[in-house]
């Protein structure tokens, strides 16, 4: 049952804001910036004159290019979770858990790729602003996914309240 006649509690409205602005808006903004600028790409991807970095860049860009479609899934389910949460509708739990699980899955793939290829090495992080941003994004995704899943699992809407 949708309770759109009642006003959502403040913490639910904050959660809906996080889902809409963070889980959906920032994901869209990241990919718009990725395709239209170099803002979200690590610095090493610009150093194409160095032969050692050409292959690394090809691997990195190939890997990153596979993310837009699954990220679209996360962005849309996250936006729907936000909408349903504002409406105090139990479907917020369904879409919120789906988007949280999806976000966690994608973040862990990204983190493991970065670990395997040495992108988290202190020397890399010290010299590459783009990689430091990447670490911040990875941590934000894991934290937001865990918080959202934890909150929705204990939410009264899950029990039909």
């Amino acid at each position: 049952m949708s309770g759109s006649g009642r006003r959502s509690p403040l913490v639910d409205r904050i959660h809906a804001g996080v889902l809409l602005a963070g889980g959906s808006g920032l994901v869209c903004a990241y990919w718009i910036a990725f395709f239209l600028s170099d803002l979200t790409k690590p610095d090493f991807t610009h150093a194409l004159a160095e032969p050692g970095l050409v292959q690394l860049t090809a691997v990195y860009m190939g890997f990153e290019s596979s993310f837009p479609l699954p990220d679209a899934f996360v962005a849309v389910t996250s936006a729907l979770a936000g909408l349903y949460l504002i409406a105090r509708d139990p479907k917020a739990v369904l879409f919120g858990l789906v988007s949280g699980g999806g976000l966690m899955f994608l973040a862990l793939i990204d983190i493991y790729f970065n670990l395997l290829h040495g992108f988290y090495a202190p020397a890399m992080l010290a010299s590459d602003t783009g990689m430091r941003i990447e670490v911040a994004i990875n941590l934000a995704c894991v934290s937001a996914a865990l918080w959202s899943i934890w909150r929705l699992w204990g939410h009264p809407l899950r029990r039909g309240a």
Binding site: I32, A72, A79
Partner: peptide
């Protein structure tokens, strides 16, 4: 390559 970005952006605007 850009279609998923168009879809997610259009859908986010649409849901809002």
């Amino acid at each position: 390559s850009i279609a998923p970005v168009l879809f997610m952006t259009g859908a986010l605007i649409g849901v809002v």
